[in-house]
Computed example of a mutant assay.
Amino acid sequence: MPELVLVTGGSGYIAGWCVAELLRRGYEVRTTVRGRDREQAVTDAVSTVVDPAGRLSFAVADLTHDDGWDAALKGVDRVLHVASPLGTASNDPGTLVATARGGTLRVLRAATAAGVKRVVMTSAANASSPSSYATQGVTDETLWTDPDDPTLIPYRRSKTVAERAAWDFMREHDGPTELTTVLPGAVFGPVLTTGNIGSVGIVGRMLTGEMRGIPRIGLEIVDVRDLVDVHVRAMTAPQAAGERFLATGEFLWMSQMAHALRDGLGAEGRQVSTRQVPDVVVRLLARFRDPSLREITPSLGRRNRHTTEKAHRVLGWQPRPARQTVLDCAESLIEHGAVRIPPRAGSGR
């Protein structure tokens, strides 16, 4: 009998790919949704890459409520806890942190009560980064972000607090359930559906020309397909129990992303701006015109990077080149009609 794996938040970008890949590898999959009205959308998305017939089921459960989690975990062998609230400038910071922490504990309580073999939790590289944005160099999983640092943006604090709470919970649990955490960088790659494109919306804005200038920000880009692969490796490798694994990819400045799109897409990349915006202009815009930019200003020019040597050594994981991921992401967005590239001037279209 194939193992049954629960994936939390099946309508999300990363979770959808987790569901698809687990099915492709022969697992039975159950995924949580916040309402039955989301089931068909998840099924349709997954069906673009694999036939889910007879092996995909759903459970209604919400990270903010206790109801449904015991039923969701019944009979489950392993868990990929991928779901997490997203942070934006409009979120209440306290609510965001409480939701991430509370949701993680709900999943772990139900998983340990059900005797699940292992829970793999999706954290973030931002939970293993120096608090000071001025810090340079390369860091590994032994470093923890200081959740009390007043300069942390809410999303970064929420991921750190939630992962801390998970490890604290497991230290007090003496049952058979094991915990492993995966800490990704900036997740890009192909989309399964236009319903939830997650972080790849950045690439979409570059393609349409909406992003008329490029801030001096660097990203450690990991392909969503490689991220799913490291989750499955962490779920099954005996030596992964009780470990944290950074899953960041190649570092690219956003200006390098823009040039990769212009050079690699031909006519479809013609709207991509490669003009870099000076840091002082970004800070002025954040202060006086666009408050949503405030969360990125601490990252301007930041060069701190993470090493994935542990994932390579322990799990045999190897991500693909970042430029290829960016191009695959763009081509997928175009193919799915997620972006509309303006016609050339005078083309008559």
Rank of each mutant, 00 (worst) to 15 (best):
L207Q: 09
E172C: 10
D149I: 07
L183C: 11
A165N: 07
T180M: 02
V161Y: 00
P147S: 05
M211V: 08
L219V: 15
T151V: 12
G201L: 06
A166S: 09
T160P: 05
Y155C: 10
Y155N: 13
D226W: 03
T208R: 06
D149P: 12
V191H: 01
A166D: 09
L183W: 00
P154D: 07
L179Q: 02
A260H: 01
G195V: 05
G204M: 00
I202M: 13
G249K: 09
M170T: 10
T180L: 05
E172Y: 00
G209P: 10
T193N: 01
A241Y: 04
T177I: 06
S158C: 14
M170C: 07
A241P: 10
G195H: 02
R244F: 02
V230F: 03
D223M: 09
G175A: 10
A237K: 12
R156Q: 13
A162V: 13
R225S: 13
H231T: 11
E163R: 10
R262N: 04
T180F: 01
A166N: 11
Y155Q: 13
V230N: 07
L192K: 04
L192I: 13
H259W: 10
L261M: 11
G242I: 12
V161H: 01
L192F: 01
E220K: 05
P176R: 06
V224G: 07
L219Q: 12
H231S: 08
E250Y: 04
G209H: 03
L265F: 00
M235G: 14
M254T: 05
M206I: 04
G249V: 06
F188I: 05
R205K: 15
V230Q: 06
A166K: 10
A240L: 12
D149W: 03
T181N: 03
G175R: 07
L179K: 00
R164I: 13
A186W: 07
G201T: 11
I197V: 15
R164P: 12
D146V: 15
